[in-house]
Design a protein around this nucleic acid. Structure first.
Lengths: 154, 154
DNA sequence: TATTGTTATACTCTATAACTATA
DNA sequence: TATAGTTATAGAGTATAACAATA
């Protein structure tokens, strides 16, 4: 607010070609992502989870038998960071580990019935949150947005 | 494949209405944002900064005389979290604090010449990074993406 | 009472290095 | 040697509570 009455001098000799923070797509990407994360986090409280742990659970439910390393590749996270998340999900009885019959290094993860229910409830809640988040976007715009975003990271 | 004989509920009895992780706009928002942040962080190493501190500096450069609390409102961050960031930027001589003449609670922040240079160099680097990030998007798509993202958080 | 700047603190998420055991 | 799971650790970012000074 207020221009502060031109404090002393300078004021930068006009920067016409120089882009500002608001011109960067990444800035809006970040701001939008933060708003989404906050809403998603609130939505996931209903199933006592958080965005990343919930994404991991969803992976297991959507791909029964997936390994931890595979989940990391799918979600783009470090193997070291999934360990405590899996420990928590396992303790809650949301999935089970089963040794791979051919490769003893690998543990194959299978969702329990409870895990499937929690994942379904979570997705439902997050979808409801997105309905609010994207309320000012038409169906076409939502699809276009998702398409453009996927193009960036995939 | 193998229809007829009415299957008795096996292997995911078709989940048509249930959205998966990949259907959530927020999922792609997050993934895209992470990729962008990584690139932006790398780009900002050239000016020894990071996304958030750089955003704060940009705010000061773009709005000379802004206060810390105002920056927090602009960037959507907590007042408590800007303190150490300002301390670092100040120590590097990127801006100066000046007591407000009317309200002694407020410190008005003004960029130094060096601060302006660093901000300009940083923006340039980040813009170059975005050129790579958005290389597969047309100019129209980039503008549409930014418009849709701004619609979400603004 | 409300706001500014501040300290302290905790949590989430991401990152790297290094270890073990298997392959 | 390469990969899977793991431990430890660090860093960035976000969040809340509380305080003193000022309005």
């Amino acid at each position: 607010m207020r221009e502060a009455m031109a404090p002393k001098a300078e004021k930068t000799t006009a920067t016409p070609a120089l882009p500002g923070l608001d011109d960067l797509v990444g800035y809006h990407l970040r701001r939008a992502s933060i708003v989404d994360l906050q809403g998603a986090s609130a939505a996931l409280e209903a199933v006592r989870s958080r965005p990343v742990p919930f994404s991991v659970l969803s992976c297991i439910v959507e791909r029964p038998g997936i390994s931890a390393a595979e989940i990391c590749r799918v979600l783009g996270m470090q193997r070291a960071n999934i360990v405590s998340i899996l420990a928590e999900l396992e303790e809650r009885g949301l999935f089970l580990r089963e040794a791979d019959s051919r490769d003893n290094r690998i543990q194959r993860l299978f969702p329990t019935r409870h895990g499937q229910d929690v994942a379904a409830q979570g997705i439902e809640r997050v979808a409801q949150h997105e309905e609010v988040l994207l309320q000012h976007l038409s169906v076409e715009e939502r699809h276009e947005l998702r398409r453009l975003l996927a193009k960036i990271w995939q």
